[in-house]
C-alpha cells in the first residue's frame, strides 16, 4: 500500500510539472514577434538617417553631406583642395548626426575611397567597437572635372556606410 501511495503521488506530481512546463512553453511561443517588429523599425531609422545625409545640403553650399565627404576623399586622393574644407564639413556633420540619431543610439559614418577614409562617430568620443549594429550602405558617384590639372574628368565612386548602435 505504501508503494502504491508513493507512485500515485509521483504520477500526480509529474502531471502537475508537465502542465506547468507546457504552460511556460505555450507563453513563450511567439516571443520573438515584437522584437522582430522593433528591429524593422530600427532598420527603417538607419535607412532614413542615411537618406538625410545623402540628400540634405550642407549649410551655405549646394553639396549634400555625402557629396561633401566624397569630394574631400577624392580630392585628398589626387592632391587637390575640396570646395568645402574637411574640418568645416566634419563640424557641420557632427551637428547633423547629433540631430538625427535616435535617443539612446549612436551613429557611425564611414566613407572610403582609394585608401582614404572618413570615419565619424556620434556622440563623439564613443567607441563603436564590439557593438551590435544595424547598417545601411551605398555609393556616392562624383564626376571631378579636369582632375589633377589635366583636361580629363574622373568618375569616382565612394563607398559609404552608416551604422547605428545602442548606447549602453
Amino acid at each position: 500500500m505504501g508503494e502504491r501511495g508513493i507512485s500515485d503521488v509521483l504520477s500526480i506530481a509529474i502531471m502537475f510539472l508537465i502542465a506547468i512546463f507546457s504552460g511556460v512553453l505555450l507563453h513563450s511561443y511567439g516571443a520573438s514577434i515584437i522584437p522582430s517588429a522593433n528591429n524593422g523599425q530600427l532598420q527603417l531609422k538607419v535607412e532614413y538617417a542615411y537618406k538625410v545625409l545623402e540628400l540634405s545640403q550642407v549649410e551655405n553650399s549646394s553639396l549634400t553631406y555625402l557629396e561633401a565627404i566624397s569630394e574631400n576623399l577624392i580630392m585628398e586622393n589626387i592632391g587637390e583642395d575640396a570646395s568645402l574644407p574637411g574640418d568645416y564639413v566634419r563640424e557641420r556633420l557632427d551637428n547633423v548626426l547629433e540631430y538625427i540619431r535616435p535617443p539612446g543610439y549612436g551613429l557611425v559614418l564611414e566613407a572610403e575611397y582609394g585608401g582614404a577614409e572618413w570615419v565619424q562617430v556620434s556622440p563623439p568620443g564613443l567607441t563603436a567597437e564590439n557593438r551590435n549594429f544595424r547598417e545601411f550602405s551605398g555609393k556616392v558617384t562624383m564626376v571631378v572635372a579636369e582632375a589633377g590639372g589635366g583636361e580629363t574628368s574622373i568618375i569616382a565612386q565612394v563607398n559609404v556606410r552608416l551604422r547605428m548602435f545602442q548606447v549602453s
Binding site: K45, Y48, V52, Q57, T64, V96, I100
Partner: peptide, 14 residues
C-alpha cells in the same frame, strides 16, 4: 520618429 529631408526655403534640410 524618423529623420527626414525637408524642402524648406528652397533648400533640402534635415
Amino acid at each position: 520618429v524618423l529623420p527626414v529631408v525637408l524642402f524648406e526655403n528652397f533648400r533640402h534640410v534635415p
